[in-house]
Amino acid sequence: MKNLKSIALALVVVLSTAAGTAQTKKIDVSKSSIEWLGKKVTGQHNGTVNFKEGAVVLKGNKLSGGNFTVDMASLTATDLSGEYQGKLNGHLKADDFFGTAKFPTATLVFKKIGTKSANVYTVTADLTIKGITKPVTFDMTVTGNSATTKFMVDRTKYDIKYNSKSFFESIGDKAIYDDFELNVKLVF
């Protein structure tokens, strides 16, 4: 009986320790995705950009960290094809937008995570685009080996001012809205 109690106590200790240990899980970059949506007065464009690498940190089954690197050279519009797609992609990669030759990657590093509800976390992270780091906050849902989030980014905070009404008041119908949307799916 004494041995049975010792075994049971050891099992409780092992299970408690395992549940509290942080585990880093690399994302599968071929299955994870980032879709973007940018709007302007006269319409919108959407597309994708690929992860270069990334990982989430889980403590038990709870989100406790994460960091990601995005390959900015993979930025592409998916709502256009041919010549028009090539022109938009070239412009988005140029210096007046993301300057991908000088800034080939963007990063996101989780700094603070709060539990909002079951499997939903409020994340504050440092987002670095064009060498400029600013905080962003978003909700992330984690289920099994995947996570999803959708959030807005103000491009002007990263020195992307091209056709922004915030900087060029008389731009009229050529204005591009400052915020763009990111819809992210992580598989790990």
Rank of each mutant, 00 (worst) to 15 (best):
N3Q: 13
L4N: 13
S6K: 15
S6P: 00
S16H: 02
T21G: 00
T21H: 08
Q23C: 10
I27F: 09
K31N: 14
I34R: 01
I34P: 03
I34T: 09
I34E: 04
L37D: 12
K40P: 06
V41S: 07
T42V: 12
G47Q: 10
N50M: 10
K52P: 00
K52R: 05
E53I: 00
A55V: 01
K59E: 15
K59Y: 10
S64M: 01
V70F: 01
A73C: 05
S74A: 10
L75P: 07
A77V: 15
T78M: 06
D79T: 09
D79R: 02
G82S: 08
E83T: 13
Y84Q: 12
H91V: 08
H91W: 05
H91Q: 07
L92W: 03
K93D: 03
G99A: 15
F103T: 07
F103M: 09
T105C: 06
L108F: 11
V109T: 15
V109I: 14
V109H: 08
F110K: 01
K111R: 11
T115W: 04
N119M: 11
N119W: 12
V120R: 02
Y121H: 10
V123F: 04
V123P: 02
I129P: 03
K130I: 11
G131N: 07
I132E: 09
I132N: 09
P135D: 10
V136Y: 08
V142A: 11
V142K: 08
T143W: 02
G144V: 12
T148E: 10
T148P: 01
T149E: 02
M152I: 03
V153M: 04
D154I: 02
K157P: 04
K161Y: 09
Y162S: 03
N163T: 00
S170H: 13
G172F: 00
D173L: 05
I176N: 06
L186N: 05
V187G: 10
V187Q: 10
